[in-house]
């Protein structure tokens, strides 16, 4: 199990106040902003930026840059690993 990805799922649920969603419901490759995924919206995307700063110390200056990183838990984990190297 990838601990970072597990942590991310819990952080997403916590930061975005997702009701009725458990970490087990979020697969690593689920499209978070897709209607068939978590159906997140533009404000959620900004909350993801807060999440990155709060839990991972990563500052996103340009929200556009975050867009490709926020596609899935996989892409988020990759983005965080890239930034922390």
């Amino acid at each position: 199990m990838d601990q970072l990805k597990e942590d991310l799922k819990h952080q997403i649920i916590e930061q975005l106040n997702l009701e009725d969603v458990t970490a087990a419901d979020i697969s690593d490759d689920m499209l978070l902003f897709d209607a068939n995924g978590l159906a997140l919206d533009s404000i959620d995307a900004l909350e993801m930026i807060v999440l990155l700063e709060k839990y991972h110390g990563i500052q996103v200056v340009n929200p556009e840059e975050g867009k490709s990183a926020f596609l899935s838990v996989n892409s988020l984990a990759e983005y965080i690993r890239q930034k922390s190297n």
């Binding site: 106040n17 900004l46 807060v50």
Partner: peptide, 11 residues
């Protein structure tokens, strides 16, 4: 707390 204001609350 963290100087990370929540946009989802702000709206």
């Amino acid at each position: 707390d963290h100087m990370s204001p929540s946009p989802a609350i702000f709206v």
